[in-house]
Design a protein around this nucleic acid. Sequence first.
DNA 1: AAAACCACAATTGTCGACAATAACCGGCAA
DNA 2: TTGCCGGTTATTGTCGACAATTGTGGTTTT
Lengths: 231, 231
Amino acid sequence: MLLQNPTKQAAVTTADKVFEQLQHAIVEGDMAAGSKISEPELARRYEISRSTLREALNRLEKCHLIERKANVGSRVVDCTIEGLLELYITREALEGMACRQAALNMTDEEIAHMQDMLAQHAGDKALQDGVAYYQEEGDVDFHYKVILGSHNQQLINLICGQLYHLVRMYRCQFGMHSPRATRAFTEHSNIIQAISDRDGELAELLMRRHIAASRKNIENKIALQQAEQES
Amino acid sequence: MLLQNPTKQAAVTTADKVFEQLQHAIVEGDMAAGSKISEPELARRYEISRSTLREALNRLEKCHLIERKANVGSRVVDCTIEGLLELYITREALEGMACRQAALNMTDEEIAHMQDMLAQHAGDKALQDGVAYYQEEGDVDFHYKVILGSHNQQLINLICGQLYHLVRMYRCQFGMHSPRATRAFTEHSNIIQAISDRDGELAELLMRRHIAASRKNIENKIALQQAEQES
DNA sequence: AAAACCACAATTGTCGACAATAACCGGCAA
DNA sequence: TTGCCGGTTATTGTCGACAATTGTGGTTTT
């Protein structure tokens, strides 16, 4: 999966593999949010020793997918609405800055490549009404390109290595495949325009608005779901 | 040290203690930046098993103080100028947003408490010309208060749990105890004013300028040092 | 009946040993 | 001399067992 590890090498050690499996299980919800993790049980299930499992657990903790308390144990993080909003606020700050840096630091080749990608997405979008492909792969691709384009290793590590796992988890858990495809596409276009104009200030502003809009969209959906449940 | 762990409990397990010692050693430069870490040797030196040491190493990796490669080993991160600037850019994004959130979410009591703190710092500053105390404890105190005031656990974890260890490391390694005491004090005052006015936008702007100024101050110092060495 | 206490079970933290991988070094051929 | 190759050494990854701590259930006491 290039998407999850845009910079690092593939998993080689068994702890790496188990980590990826657990990560997938947590993100997809196969491992319930908020549930306790029993080291002996998991070790048996994956047929590895507890040491190896703990190594994998440590990596899960690094991307904030589980929480550990000394002498008590590990729990899968629970998905609260507050947590989701906090996450998007953090994204707004980090990706906004990444976008500003991308406008300053991206090479002309990178920018051209991103424009090509967007054009291709436009074709796909026109072809199949964009509901399926674009928002899933395309949206993530776009954001990754921008983040990597910042050429700021600190930002890249924080966002890709930690934040995005949580983002994907929340998306799965709350079942929101945001249907903002056409609007998002326009926003992406404008952001790329600002980047290719080397206008860092505007690029940051647009990216922040883009993420904030996504956050508000989610807030509305949540409110709607709650209203349905109460009725 | 409350400063390093404003939210979490004290260390209880031996891995915790070793982690804190290693953290201190790395930050203070007792363990050279960029140097390789030998697990057997360190385990002997601290009189613990390799398992316990690896647990501590994992926590160090969580705050980006060391880097690990599979089947190769761990190295202390090296302090490059580029890394320092990247770090400050990230701080600008995160603390700026934290400051905006603080303006929205801090309680009146918290704001009052922060104003008291600033007033006391003002006294200390007038008393002893502020060079020693203020910039060390005071500056960190102020920033921590703002970050915690955001009431955003995601931001708090990222900044306090990860970024600030690196910040302190760079400060020690490059030996910069920024002599911007009086200017920084004024800037802090203005930020608190914006927060107490509940003006999130201004608060973020001021905090970002504050950190950007600090970054430029460092850039100048670096340039000066390099000029000296070349002469 | 409620609260405090104690013992038991289960889980986590720590340890030392073994297996697998990578770095090092000397020898050989070009 | 330089570059490549194979054996040796050291380091890391993995394992199973023991020690320490926590949570639980029953018992006792007020």
